[in-house]
Design a protein around this nucleic acid. Sequence first.
DNA 1: GTGAACCATGACGCGACGTGAGGGTCAAGG
DNA 2: CCTTGACCCTCACGTCGCGTCATGGTTCAC
Lengths: 255, 255
Amino acid sequence: MEEHTIGEVARLSHTSVRTLHHYDAIELVVPSGRSAAGYRLYSAEDLGRLRQVLSYRELGFSLEEIAEILADPDARADDHLRRQHRMLRDRQVQTQALLSAIEKEMEARQMGIALTPAEQFEIFGTDSLGGAYSEEAEQRWGDTESWAQSRRRTAAYTKEHWTAIKSEADANLAGFADALSFGESTTGPVTAFLVEAHRSQISRWFYDCSPEMHRGLAELYVTDPRFTATFEDVAPGLAQYVHDAICANTGNAER
Amino acid sequence: MEEHTIGEVARLSHTSVRTLHHYDAIELVVPSGRSAAGYRLYSAEDLGRLRQVLSYRELGFSLEEIAEILADPDARADDHLRRQHRMLRDRQVQTQALLSAIEKEMEARQMGIALTPAEQFEIFGTDSLGGAYSEEAEQRWGDTESWAQSRRRTAAYTKEHWTAIKSEADANLAGFADALSFGESTTGPVTAFLVEAHRSQISRWFYDCSPEMHRGLAELYVTDPRFTATFEDVAPGLAQYVHDAICANTGNAER
DNA sequence: GTGAACCATGACGCGACGTGAGGGTCAAGG
DNA sequence: CCTTGACCCTCACGTCGCGTCATGGTTCAC
């Protein structure tokens, strides 16, 4: 029932008064009350919303995106928590990859072997959230360019690379398995995120993977027994589930 | 000896041509050559610098800060690598803290206990890199404000909090013990990192700990037998070692 | 020799605030 | 009652790191 002034809120939330003014102006976090003198008064509920906003901001979303996310009436608070949890785990994996890249380069330097900048970019040049999609990469699956690209890149990978790749992939797969066991719909936001992460991983480590190519890959997961086996090994029905999730989330050009 | 055009560099480095134009304009990454027609030509050295810039940018530095960092003639390439490594490890710790905060809240929600926003901010509101040092906190050790702050915060901690705190502290202490057994100097980079991590932990869980307060705390470790005992329990000479390490690494204000 | 795909230099726009300017509000103390 | 200082308000312009045209030159394959 307590109401807080803007200065108190700024201190509590480790932001600035100006930021809160801004969020009010763009109607992202609007204080539910005003004093007689026109002072903004933030309720406990307002603070809860603010915390959600700051969490998502920390994860790299734009304020506009955050507004959309929080506007979704289907998503309850724990959905947000789960999503944030997933993304933080993703960040852990990403950071870990950067760490081992640095360690690898330090090792190389100590042995007097300097990597060429091109090699360094190969390792380091993955950006933090979601990967960069090269529009110029050919669109069709089975395309020669993809294979060539994949071979060029994987040729330079060391053992450490492969273990990093494996752990990333495992984490993603575990996410899908969790979603499946939780009865998460293949059209829901959680699976959407997992699908995107999956595609991002492929793009980072192997070849620039367009949504079309991604769907082609999903097809393989249920038709090629070698792929199917790896999925079913983790959880029964997972191959089909992942396939459906990818198909459901690559139809429209979302994001 | 190879020279790259701006488009090639953009693709290699996963950035845009515009970004490279910008970096040229602000003289952050200036191509070392131009073709007869005025085309920018980037040498391997230029690419190396670009990679450094992008690494630091990924870590959240502003372009101006990056320029300063890279302008330092004392810092050789491995210094940059070490610094980046340290900051990434910091990010790992920070992300881990956020993760456990989320896990804790999910658990609380499932038991139907809603945390008040104030409590949530207490946990969540440490910002991404290194924690925000509240300038208004009094500077002197033994100060009442620190104690009050610590009591306010710890009062809200649950059993899970304490186990998390304990495991963090244990890991840090184990690091010191390793450093001691490896004959690591108290002025070396490894101990510098451990000291900083130690201070960071205190700031996060108890009170904003300035370097001055940190030195005061170190003094306690060798004078107060209760503290000394916990250290000597892990390894003989550890109390003195940690004390020396803290003193050696809080003298100058290195970022 | 003619597209198509590069490159160049402005110049404006935008998101997420920082930073005043100019002016009310509120509680404590003289 | 009046001042003082720490708050609060609303404009409004500035900054940073680019995205996005606009306009025009260059290169190269066909």
